[in-house]
């Protein structure tokens, strides 16, 4: 039951991240998506994978994206 709720929120976040106009917001929502993936993975008893996804996905990946966005610009048309 909890898995189903978390999966629904994941789908909502994925859809939101692809449709906001500000790229900074999109990368932060992707960080939250990564965190929810980590929670779902630890619910499915994959603790090593959840640890890696938490470090790499919502840590380094978000930082690298924001670092690039500072050079490239936050505005987008779609």
């Amino acid at each position: 039951m909890l898995e189903f709720i978390i999966l629904l929120i994941l789908v909502i976040f994925a859809f939101l991240s692809l449709n906001v106009k500000n790229l900074f917001t999109a990368s932060i929502i992707l960080g939250a998506y990564s965190f929810l993936t980590c929670v779902l993975l630890s619910k499915m008893l994959a603790v090593d994978v959840a640890f890696t996804e938490a470090c790499v996905g919502s840590g380094v990946s978000t930082v690298l994206m924001v670092a690039t966005l500072c050079k490239v610009g936050f505005k987008t048309k779609d």
Binding site: D48, A50, F51, T52, V56, G59, V60, V63
Partner: peptide, 13 residues
């Protein structure tokens, strides 16, 4: 749970 990958990424962080 842990190992080389996770520790290396935390060090980089």
């Amino acid at each position: 749970p842990g190992g080389g990958f996770q520790g290396g990424v935390i060090l980089a962080a």
